[in-house]
């Protein structure tokens, strides 16, 4: 079984089975400190994680946005509320330089 893990301060944290992720969409994960991460996978099977909180509205909804890619091939998520786009690798907002979200390292690990 393959699982998805996030790198937190204390080490790798297992989120869920990789099969639960739908390419092009996200899920929300509750982290041990009570904060939330939005975890995505794209068509090519790469996994990304950023903060779930949409800094433009304060709502915890980024996991429910749609994935897209820029002409340069950079993956992003568009917030479902006011449609700000966030780069999944850097957390930068593509529409407003004053906004950004935190990112997490992710890993898929197989345990047999």
């Amino acid at each position: 079984m393959t699982t998805v893990q996030l790198r937190l301060e204390g080490g790798w944290f297992t989120i869920c089975e990789a099969a639960l992720l739908t390419p092009g969409r996200g899920v929300a994960a509750l982290l041990p400190d009570g904060s939330q991460a939005a975890v995505f996978t794209d068509r090519r099977g790469r996994t990304y994680a950023i903060d779930n909180r949409d800094p433009s509205t304060g709502a915890y909804v980024l996991s429910r946005g749609l994935l897209g890619s820029t002409p340069e091939g950079r993956p992003y998520v568009a917030s479902p509320l006011l449609k700000h786009r966030f780069d999944l690798e850097t957390g930068a907002c593509l529409d407003d330089a004053a906004l950004a979200v935190g990112t997490y390292l992710t890993e898929r690990s197989s345990q047999f």
Binding site: G24, D42, R43, G65, L66, L67, G68, S69, P71, G73, P75, A78, K83, R85
Partner: peptide, 12 residues
């Protein structure tokens, strides 16, 4: 350039 990519929040 968009072929093979993710598409975007408009076309999806």
């Amino acid at each position: 350039w968009a072929r093979g990519g993710e598409g975007c929040e408009i076309c999806k």
